Amino acid sequence: MTRRQLTDEQWQLIEPFLPIGEYGPYPERLREQFEGVIWRFRTSSQWREMPGEFGPWPTVYGRFRVWRDAGVFTVLLEGVIAEAARQGKTDLSLVSVDSTTARAHHDAAGM
């Protein structure tokens, strides 16, 4: 029995952002692999500790690396924000911008 991390509605929003390569993942395992990535970061566990229900951990880790390197998570975040805005569920009062100023040594400027 698979522990679902995502509702079907959430998955319908996420799935179009996940590329399916020439050699996989097989579409029927795509959700399990993505949920394996979620499990890994929610639990702060090591990849090797991943339950088998998400597939072999090296496969899930490899899929994560492909998605990370392709910028999938950045595009997914932007897509989720755009969908929330479309539904009127964004609250810009929650946006936080932080900056820090640090003085550099005068040699850092090439003096």
Results as ranks from 00 to 15, higher is better:
residue 73 F to G: 11
residue 27 P to Q: 08
residue 69 D to W: 15
residue 45 S to M: 14
residue 19 P to Y: 15
residue 67 W to M: 14
residue 86 R to S: 05
residue 83 E to C: 13
residue 6 L to S: 12
residue 14 I to M: 04
residue 72 V to Y: 00
residue 9 E to L: 12
residue 4 R to G: 12
residue 20 I to Y: 10
residue 103 R to W: 05
residue 68 R to A: 13
residue 32 E to F: 02
residue 47 W to Q: 14
residue 16 P to T: 04
residue 81 I to V: 15
residue 4 R to E: 14
residue 108 A to C: 01
residue 32 E to I: 05
residue 49 E to G: 13
residue 102 A to P: 01
residue 101 T to I: 13
residue 13 L to C: 05
residue 67 W to K: 09
residue 18 L to K: 13
residue 21 G to R: 03
residue 57 W to N: 07
residue 99 S to N: 06
residue 11 W to P: 06
residue 102 A to W: 06
residue 53 E to C: 08
residue 16 P to K: 07
residue 109 A to C: 01
residue 36 G to F: 00
residue 74 T to H: 12
residue 81 I to F: 02
residue 76 L to H: 01
residue 95 V to Q: 09
residue 68 R to Q: 14
residue 53 E to R: 15
residue 97 V to H: 03
residue 94 L to E: 11
residue 85 A to K: 08
residue 98 D to W: 07
residue 37 V to H: 06
residue 52 G to W: 01
residue 56 P to D: 10
residue 65 R to Y: 14
residue 46 Q to I: 08
residue 90 T to Y: 05
residue 93 S to F: 07
residue 34 F to K: 03
residue 40 R to A: 08
residue 62 G to I: 14
residue 69 D to L: 15
residue 83 E to T: 15
residue 102 A to D: 03
residue 9 E to W: 15
residue 57 W to T: 09
residue 33 Q to I: 07
residue 105 H to Q: 04
residue 15 E to G: 01
residue 28 E to D: 07
residue 10 Q to R: 04
residue 1 M to T: 12
residue 16 P to C: 05
residue 4 R to A: 14
residue 66 V to C: 13
residue 51 P to H: 10
residue 73 F to Q: 06
residue 86 R to A: 07
residue 80 V to N: 11
residue 74 T to W: 10
residue 21 G to Y: 02
residue 23 Y to E: 03
residue 40 R to L: 12
residue 48 R to E: 14
residue 95 V to H: 04
residue 16 P to I: 05
residue 58 P to N: 13
residue 103 R to L: 01
residue 5 Q to G: 09
residue 54 F to I: 09
residue 28 E to P: 04
residue 66 V to A: 15
residue 111 M to D: 02
residue 86 R to D: 06
residue 18 L to C: 06
